[in-house]
């Protein structure tokens, strides 16, 4: 009975963490004075860092027209965009920039092409920051690829792994399920 209590407590802890993770903050951090947005051409979605909330669904392959601006002449500047990984793995930097400029806005076009092996259901956080004479500007957005998660062989490998290790664990724990006379 004690064991069941511990299992229940563990389950509640995990569900609490899961619930809090689902509401991870998207949008610009307080104090940020810049603006940034991107339009996914094929998906027909425009993501504005200032107003973004919830999960934005995009394609595995698309072209993004991006634009960013700051309130005053930036001077020496630096920044980067990264994808957040589960703790303690940190982040993967997608792009970084630095320089010295007096221009207050910039824009461009980026094409990305991710393999279809990447499961569609994954919700991931893309975050970024930009520092210059105006201060620091940071924000994040949650993205998800459209389509079925079952379309990727990686998902099937994971489901198979769950089944095999689950059966193995149940087999190893047989004495626990045996009735004590």
């Amino acid at each position: 009975m004690k064991l069941m209590r511990w299992c229940f407590a563990g389950g509640v802890m995990v569900l609490t963490l899961a619930g809090s993770a689902a509401h991870a903050g998207a949008g610009l951090e307080p104090g940020s004075t810049c603006s940034a947005s991107g339009t996914f051409r094929d998906a027909g979605v425009t993501v504005d860092a200032a107003t973004s909330s919830g999960v934005v669904t995009v394609h595995h392959t698309d072209t993004v027209d991006w634009t960013g601006s700051v309130t005053g002449a930036p001077g020496p500047y630096s920044g980067s965009v990264w994808v957040k990984l589960p703790p303690p793995f940190g982040t993967v930097t997608v792009r970084s920039w630095s320089g010295d400029s007096q221009t207050t806005s910039n824009s461009g076009t980026e094409h990305y092409n991710l393999p279809s092996m990447v499961p569609a259901g994954i919700t991931f956080t893309v975050a970024g920051e930009h520092k210059d004479n105006n201060g620091r500007c940071a924000g994040s957005v949650q993205l998800q690829f459209d389509g079925s998660p079952l379309g990727s062989p990686i998902t099937w490998v994971s489901l198979g792994g769950t089944a095999i290790t689950g059966i193995g664990a149940a087999f190893a724990l047989r004495p626990l399920f045996r009735k004590v006379m």
């Binding site: 995990v14 963490l17 899961a18 993770a21 991870a24 703790p87 991931f124 994971s158 769950t162």
Partner: peptide, 17 residues
């Protein structure tokens, strides 16, 4: 992994760890 692949938890969630 299943929870991440089916979008139940985000990739950067502590649940994965």
């Amino acid at each position: 992994l299943d929870l991440v692949f089916f979008g139940v938890v985000a990739l950067d969630s502590a649940v994965v760890t």
